[in-house]
Amino acid sequence: MKKILISGGAGYIGSHTVQALSKAGYGPVVLDSLITGHRKAVSKNISFYQGDIADDGLVSNIIKKENVSAAIHFAARSLVGESVQKPDLYFEENVAKTNRFMSTLLKCGVNKVVFSSTAATYGNPEVTPIAEESGTEPINPYGASKLMIEQSLYWLEQAYGLKWVALRYFNAAGAALDGSLGEDHTTETHLIPLILKTALGHREAISILGTDYNTPDGTCIRDYIHVLDLAEAHIRALEALDQGVACGAYNVGTGAGYSVREVVNMAKRVTGMDIPVVEAHRRAGDPDVLVAKVEKIQKTLGWQARYSDLETIIKTAWEWHQKHPHGYEK
């Protein structure tokens, strides 16, 4: 059984990937600070360590004790607004600590890494769908921090032979099919959970931020990818590294998008509730359309989205929110 170290494995995407790895016959080993992750999101039969990725001694001991052969690196701060307010925090937590983490992995003989990156590395693209070769001009410190890490992985490859794949997620959404795992953020900024929290009565209304975009219904369009499809992409990336795939970045999306109004209407249909909506002014810097070009990951890694139709995304998310109306901790 191959042991895989999962940093941030108690987070939203990390916990789903841990479960998928376990089902696929891998031995996931989770390292999480629990600053934003949830211990209850990781099964008790999974090896779990609470701590910081920059703790060289802890990481070294885990690698030796568990006989780790590769790593998937999720651990990061990921709130765009917070990154603008506290850029120093993001460059410390994301960039500096990842550098320490990578150095420890390499010193301990772990030279295969799948990195959790983001479409925020592209900034406001001039052309959509967005290809991996598109210009990377982040417009916030969060996206900049992830791009810096991608760039560092390239140089670690040149110097030390690191084998890596960076997965640039678009809009992660949905939950485990049985409602056992889901999205639980202390500060929630994602559209679908905010809509479903409104359906549960935890919010008075959902705000549609902008109705004057250059799209069919005037609301912005985003590429939503089911968290289970994201988890599968990490497994395919691990397999590809074992097979000697060229290092680099891959988009993880569907190649299609849904408008904010379409998402709200689907949520109304799935929940059977008339969810209150308030139309508000658009946020500065929000592009009309953000959709991934996905041919590269499909052809090279053999990955295909299976659960990312809008109805499945919202049905699974609704199942989670109904079963855990106050998240993991209550």
Rank of each mutant, 00 (worst) to 15 (best):
S15M: 00
A70Y: 07
V165W: 14
A267M: 08
Y142Q: 05
D184E: 04
S117I: 01
F170T: 04
G25A: 13
S78T: 08
I35E: 07
K315N: 06
G135T: 15
R203C: 14
A131F: 08
M266C: 02
I235Y: 06
A233K: 14
G253M: 01
N171F: 15
E319L: 15
T104Q: 07
C247I: 02
D217H: 01
P216F: 12
L200V: 03
L177W: 11
A249Q: 09
K299H: 10
E132F: 03
A41M: 03
L58W: 08
W155M: 15
L156G: 13
N111P: 03
L58M: 07
P325W: 02
G143K: 06
L5Y: 09
K330H: 15
K23E: 09
A249P: 05
I313E: 00
E279H: 06
Q50G: 03
S43D: 15
E93M: 04
K64V: 13
R100F: 08
V165T: 06
H226W: 13
D309A: 12
A144Q: 07
D309T: 12
Y26V: 02
I235R: 01
A246K: 05
K86F: 05
K97C: 02
T121C: 13
G179V: 11
E295P: 02
L177S: 13
L228K: 05
P325K: 15
G201A: 07
S103H: 08
Y169M: 08
V245Q: 06
G109E: 01
S152N: 11
Y307C: 04
L177N: 04
Y258E: 11
G327D: 04
H226L: 04
I53N: 02
K146R: 06
L105H: 02
V110S: 05
A256C: 11
